[in-house]
């Protein structure tokens, strides 16, 4: 089999696998019982355990002003007796910062490396989009480091484009 044919077949197989896997992902609001898994997943990905930070984030985004704050988790529903946390997403409706009309702001998205390329990220982003729309906004924003290719490719593939704001910074002397 030629390399070209093989690559095309692999791409088709990946699409099928992704569609099947997506059907096995369930997204719901985070619960207190999820937090140990969220903290462990973040520590595994960032190699920087920060339980206090996540406990505080959950207190603010998982328990307060739930009509405009969303802390969602994705879990596998393939095996109901042993549900596995596949990832999480956090966002909120932000308004009037720098003159912006209200928009949905995603500030955290994390997917278990073993669950990537299986539609988990898309399921999380779709779920939070639905919540934002229910909250009355029609624009979703996020911020990505331009050298993190994986995240850039993901958000672009989900239809996100550069917005009207540009991030500026300076060294403090």
């Amino acid at each position: 089999m030629s390399r070209i044919r093989k690559e095309a077949d692999l791409a088709t197989a990946a699409k099928t696998r992704e569609a099947k896997a997506e059907a096995h992902v369930r997204v719901r609001r985070a619960r207190t019982a999820d937090m140990a898994k969220v903290i462990a997943l973040d520590a595994r990905i960032t190699e920087l355990p920060k339980p206090d930070y996540w406990t505080d984030v959950f207190r603010r985004y998982g328990k307060q002003r739930l009509n405009e704050r969303f802390f969602l988790v994705a879990e596998s529903r393939a095996d109901k007796s042993n549900t596995q946390l596949l990832g999480f997403i956090i966002g909120e409706v932000r308004a009037w910062e720098f003159g912006s009309t209200p928009c949905g702001w995603v500030f955290a998205l994390s997917v278990d490396p073993n669950a990537r390329l299986h539609g988990t990220g898309r399921a999380l982003l779709d779920a939070i989009s639905v919540e934002f729309k229910k909250a009355g906004v029609n624009k979703m924003r996020t911020m990505v480091a331009r050298d993190t290719l994986l995240q850039m490719l993901f958000f672009r593939s989900e239809g996100m484009m550069a917005g009207p704001y540009i991030q500026l910074e300076k060294d403090l002397e």
Partner: peptide
């Protein structure tokens, strides 16, 4: 340059197809 490269390097042909369709 950095912004141009980051933009061009993060948009795949499949993503462009979706953009064309939209």
């Amino acid at each position: 340059d950095d912004i141009s490269r980051a933009t061009l390097g993060s948009i795949t042909i499949a993503t462009m197809r979706k953009l064309v369709d939209r």
